[in-house]
Design a protein around this nucleic acid. Structure first.
Lengths: 112, 112
DNA sequence: CGTGTAAGGAATTCTGACACG
DNA sequence: CGTGTAAGGAATTCTGACACG
């Protein structure tokens, strides 16, 4: 009955104007970083961009890097390098070819 | 260096159109429930309302109550009754006059 | 009481482009 | 390459009001 699975942090519900307020970046910059594939806002039916809190945190990191003179290409590479720990583990598992084995063990749906 | 204190859930960053998408309520209803003091959106400089994820959860509860025929006045009373558990405990403690005693016990910062 | 709607205005967002460099 | 800006249009949001009940 209770909702425990609500990843507010990743829900794309924030419009670009508020992102500007929260990050201090210009609309132009925010859109451009999306164009350069550093962030991936959703679009609603009408085509307006929707950002998440995660996107905002990323944008702040991006802004810091940019101030240091780092180019968007370089920033994208850095961000891809530090993949999320969970994804990393899954990737390793799949590469080791243990993904199917894992499923074979778990698809046993008999009581005993 | 890391930011651990980010209550995304209570940040007022969502515009009314998105709230409508997320709750299924009409703009009229969402504004009206604010007028009746069931929720308390912020306003930005220009006067547009900003809601939080908490507000959205409240709105869903409100919608359920309304479907049962409960009036907004009654809903407001019910919501005030169920104060947050933490606040409740603190209130109890303060009323018992043990608030200072509690602090006296804990302000002992000697190793032993 | 709770909600719909039409009304007029103000603010938001979008895209493609020119500019500078 | 990264960002500013003016341009025109489309979509959003606001308030106060009338309506029904």
């Amino acid at each position: 009955m209770s909702s425990e699975s609500t990843p507010y942090k990743d829900k794309k519900v924030i419009s670009i104007g508020i992102v500007r307020e929260l990050t201090g970046l210009s609309l132009r910059q925010i859109r451009y970083y999306g164009e350069r594939k550093l962030i991936f806002p959703d679009r609603n039916e009408k085509g307006t961009r929707r950002y998440s809190f995660s996107d905002i945190e990323k944008l702040i990191e991006i802004a810091n890097k940019r101030e240091e003179g780092v180019q968007t290409n370089e920033i994208r590479r850095e961000m891809n390098k530090e993949t999320k720990p969970v994804e990393k583990r899954m990737l390793k598992e799949m590469l080791r070819g243990q993904f199917n084995a894992h499923f074979r063990n778990n698809s046993n749906n008999k009581p005993f």
